[in-house]
Amino acid sequence: MRYDRQIKLDEVGVSGQEKLRNASVLIVGVGGLGCPAAQYLTGAGIGKIGLMDHDTISVSNLHRQVLYDENDLGKSKVLVAKEKLQRLNSEIELVAIEEALTIDNAEKLFSEYDLILDGTDNFETKYLINDACILAGKPWVYASIYKNEGQLSVFNYQNGPSYRCLFSKTTRQNVSCEATGVLGVVPGIFGMLQAMEALKIILGVGNVLSGKLKISNLLSGSEQILNIQKKPEEIEKVKKNGIMSVRMDCEMKDSDKKYLDVREEFEQPKVTAANVIHIPLGELQQRSNEIPEQEEVLVFCQSGKRSAKAVEMLQTDFGFQNLKNVEGGIKTIING
């Protein structure tokens, strides 16, 4: 029978196989990491696997995303993956989600799965996964690749540390595998290590890599396991503020400029950098004393309209000389 070879293991058995059948995993990003993870989790008989990606298959994917083949070029990754994986195992449910993960869809989507497997290739989405997992109360299996080196960990598992406990500050220098180059085997191995962590979590066996960061260099053969310290304030910040936009965070943190955000508290994306003051337009008159007068302050809102009003009012009514409107709003600061 199909699962005989794994049921034979003491760690699995008939009851373990039942756990796998009742489990659900959402794979965000079905590329170099997500493909091998999806293949092995499908083989293992995970009851429901969500496949999320908005990308299509290109020829430069094929050296590492070996689930796909030459006939699939230009097609949706998740639709092709679903079809092929279903042929591997017709007994499980595969859900293709042809969308990007966003602030708006993440938390609700995560609540429908037991755990999240991170197959993404950028910091924005990793922080988004982290924050949404904290809010939805789900563990996630993380991996990242830089050339021949990979990082692996499990976050938000049984009150363990989060990704923000490891990297509370990020870098603007995101380098993708496309940019640096990578041998297909490297994400392949890490995607499978992620699948192994997912199986351990579901089966409740072994040592889950929570609170630890495994770093392997597959070229030199060196391996390190570092202990991650939980920073409860990083987790509380997410619970209090909701999903925080990291793109804004890192764009502004490195800048020595001062910003004034005149948007309402609920507006997305949120900005939590220390060099940003938040005063909604309607409160500016009472709180104008909180705005520095000596250095240049860039005033922004969502589109640039409210902030233009704010600048005009603060100049006319309070005599500020140091304010400059960010035309085009928050998006121009992100892109710029």
Binding site: D121, N122, F123, S144, T171, T180, I215, Q224
Partner: peptide
Amino acid sequence: VAFLPPFAGG
């Protein structure tokens, strides 16, 4: 003492 940068490739 280990020096560890964040990276995000996949």
